[in-house]
């Protein structure tokens, strides 16, 4: 089977190649801005280098990928926002099936069978897709390949009627350790009464060497924190070895984002909060009393 892959993000490129190799040979599209990182690519059969197009050109990418896809059975894209924006458009242009955020993929009787989370994380859908298929792959599910030097072929950029013009693009400031790569995460919810009180969570995270994330209300409604740290199905999905959830009730949106965590601790005053069903260890206590004591005791251990 022939697989065509593209991602804006070089980190995700390698995961896509690895996913694609479960199906067959992978051809990877790279754009002008990615050319400098061509040597990082392992495991693909070939690189299709389009020097005439940048990865910020959404309309150009839809045209380029759709134009090449005729020679392939499966198109793999990434599940970041820019990748997901392409999936439906490319699939529809090809009259192809589509699925996003798939965690596994295989071929059975000429159909692509994928698994993906649905119902806010309460169910896994097993979907059968007719070929050709355009899918995006869930982040962190496929281990980057370590070997296999691809050949490089240059391709030309298609001409596109432009209807979208980028008039401003600002790179976002990089947060220290991205939440989805953090080993230890302290997640804060509405149990915190005011923004200043979040320092209790930061102090705990500091002593553990972890980072602080938030539920949707804290990031989106109250805007106490940046939206990059918002955990959930429409935010970041995390997989730390230790997650401490403080003052969050455990709404489905959030629950779906923490499922892959290894050990989950919940601190909440309400013993009936759904978060306790999603936790390995539950502490039914006021966070304002519990957190300072936990942080102090951890400091003592780390200090001694």
């Amino acid at each position: 089977m022939k697989v065509l892959a593209f991602s804006h993000s070089m980190d995700l490129v390698l995961e896509l190649i690895s996913a694609g190799r479960e199906l067959g040979d992978v051809s990877l599209i790279m754009t002008s801005d990615q050319e400098g990182r061509i040597n990082e690519v392992k495991g693909a059969k070939e690189i299709l280098l389009c020097k005439g197009m940048g990865s910020g050109d959404q309309e150009g990418l839809v045209e380029l990928i759709s134009g090449l896809a005729g020679d392939y059975e499966v198109v793999l894209l990434a599940s970041d926002r820019r990748g997901r924006e392409l999936v439906g458009q490319v699939a529809h242009r090809l009259g192809a099936s589509s699925a996003v955020d798939v965690s596994s993929l295989s071929v059975e009787d000429g159909k692509l069978v994928v698994e993906r989370m649905t119902f806010g994380g309460k169910a896994i859908a097993v979907e059968e897709l007719g070929l050709p298929a355009v899918i995006s792959v869930q982040k962190g599910k496929f281990k980057p390949p370590e070997e296999g030097e691809p050949s490089v072929r240059e391709i030309s950029a298609p001409s596109v009627e432009r209807r979208i013009e980028v008039i401003e693009r600002k790179e976002k400031p990089k947060v220290g350790v991205p939440l989805d790569k953090a080993e230890i995460v302290v997640a804060v919810g509405r149990g915190f009464r005011k923004k200043e009180d979040l320092k209790l969570a930061y102090e705990l995270a500091d002593v553990l060497g972890g980072v602080v994330g938030a539920t949707r209300p804290i990031a989106a409604d109250l805007k106490w924190m940046e939206e990059e740290v918002w955990i959930g199905i429409s935010g970041v999905r995390i997989a730390p070895k230790l997650l401490i959830v403080v003052g969050a009730s455990g709404q489905q949106q959030f629950a779906a984002g923490i499922m892959d965590s290894k050990v989950v601790v919940a601190v909440n005053t309400d013993s009936k909060a759904p978060i306790f069903e999603q936790a390995d260890y539950g502490v039914v206590m006021d966070l304002y009393e519990f957190l300072p004591v936990l942080t102090r005791k951890l400091k003592e251990i780390k200090g001694g």
């Binding site: 009259g95 192809a96 099936s97 589509s98 699925a99 069978v113 989370m117 649905t118 119902f119 994380g121 309460k122 169910a123 896994i124 859908a125 097993v126 979907e127 059968e128 897709l129 007719g130 298929a133 499922m259 989950v264 306790f276 069903e277 999603q278 936790a279 390995d280 260890y281 539950g282």
Partner: peptide, 17 residues
């Protein structure tokens, strides 16, 4: 172009201590 073959309940096994 797509058929849902099955809907499964993910097994989330938490200790709930």
């Amino acid at each position: 172009k797509l058929v849902i073959r099955e809907l499964k309940v993910p097994k989330v096994e938490r200790k709930q201590i």
